[in-house]
Structure formats: C-alpha cells, structure tokens
Design a protein around this nucleic acid. Structure first.
Lengths: 113, 113
DNA sequence: AATAATACATAACATTCTTATGCATTATAC
DNA sequence: GTATAATGCATAAGAATGTTATGTATTATT
C-alpha cells in the first residue's frame, strides 16, 4: 500500500531535512531510495516533488551542495548548513508534536451518537 | 503555537470525516470550534479551507446535509452517508498507519556521521 | 541488444490551501 | 443604545506544492 499523495504533502521538506540531519550528506536519488527502503515502499518520493524541494532548500540557504562525478555520471550531494541544522530540529519537533495531536484526535471515542 | 499550514494539508478531510463519524451530525462552524478546542487552538481550520472541503464531500456522496434555522440564522448540518462511514474508517486507518511510519522515520538515530 | 536502474532537471497541469471579500444575524461590552 | 465580537454561510483570486510527462545521459543487467 502506498500512502495517498495528499498525506505526504507538507511533510516532504521535514523528511528531507531529517535525513540530511542524520546522514551528513546525501544526493537526490539516494534520498528517494532511502525513504522507500525505510518505509517499506509506502512513501515514494517522485522526482518532480524532490528536486524542486531540494532547490528551494538550497535557495533559502538551508543546504549546501557539492557536485561529484561517478565515472561520467553526475551526483549532487546536499548537506545541511548551520541554519539547516536548526531548521531540521524545529521541523522534526513540530511534526512530532503535530502527530501527537493528530493521534489524540483520531483516538477519540464517539460522542453524542 | 499554531502548526504551519502545510502540515495540515492532506489531513483536513480525514479530520472532518473522523469528527462526523463520532458525532452523527455537525455544522461547519461547529467543526472549526471543535477542532480548535480539541487541539488547544493548535489547529485552526479556516473557512476558505473548510467549506470547499465540505462541499466536495457532499458532491462525492460521502455526506448528506440538512439545513435548519436557529432564529433567522441558517445552519447546515452534515452527516456521514453509508459510504462516508466506510471512507472515514479507511482514512483514519491510513492516517494512523502513516503516522506510525513517520514516527519511525523521525525517531531514527543518526547514521553515517 | 534491449531494458532497467541510476541521476539529474524542468514544465504543464491539477489540487488545495491562504487571504480577502461579501452578506447577514445575534450576543456582548462599553 | 450602539459598536464590536461572535456566529454562520459562501466564493474567488492568488500562492504553494505536488503529479504527470518529458528530456537527456550513463551504467548495469538480462
């Protein structure tokens, strides 16, 4: 089962920042594969979502990049900047809090029925 | 603290379906207040998001409506249809599952650092 | 030799939320 | 008593962000 795409909206940036916080540096394709692996294929990040998000993180100074060649094939590695590390902590914390709230909402028992 | 709006994206329909599953019938304004109350004001549903969503649920046959007058003021009550009840269970279940997955992702310990 | 996987990128389109606006009734505070 | 806040609905322009499709190229596998 793959989660409906709408569910992933709004969490993508946080997922990426969290992975980069844990792994020092990663390249785009690697991120998609890591997320797929860690979630038993339930979250599949599409390239059309991934690359614009990475570029936005770069534009806002949260990540820095290094380009490397593996043979003739290019790889662009992303790493968190100092700001990015702070932002990663904030976003992860916010999402954890949000999930606690949602868990509470979803576990509510039926009321005036 | 109010959650960043992007976080709520994708969960709004599920929240509404869950509330309707628990409460037999509710009207729009009541839903916004209930969510605000249950989440200690951390989730505030705006009218511009709420009403289009309710209308979409109605158009897809997941809810039925009854209009009532309180004095001269109109209220539109929403109730789950049979399909809506099924859908509510599905969406709540999917979101619970998704949150477990996200919790796992966010709780991961740093790796190759 | 053909196909799949790796690896980047962008663009048209769709969806969905924000922000603003509009209208109207009822309760509250000054 | 009247101005403001709260209640209650609705829609529309614009922004944000994801989907789907496309493009290019290298390397591994069948």
């Amino acid at each position: 089962m793959i989660y409906s795409s709408e569910l992933i909206k709004g969490t993508l940036k946080t997922i990426i920042l969290k992975l980069l916080a844990d792994n020092k540096r990663m390249y785009g394709y690697e991120i998609t594969q890591k997320v797929k692996e860690l979630t038993s294929e339930k979250i599949q990040i599409t390239e059309g979502a991934l690359y614009p998000t990475l570029h936005a993180l770069e534009d806002s100074g949260l990540v820095t990049t290094e380009t490397e060649y593996i043979g003739k094939r290019v790889r662009k590695y992303y790493s968190l900047s100092a700001d990015g590390k702070t932002k990663a902590r904030e976003k992860v914390s916010e999402l954890s809090d949000f999930m606690e709230t949602m868990k509470f909402l979803l576990d509510l028992k039926p009321q005036g029925i």
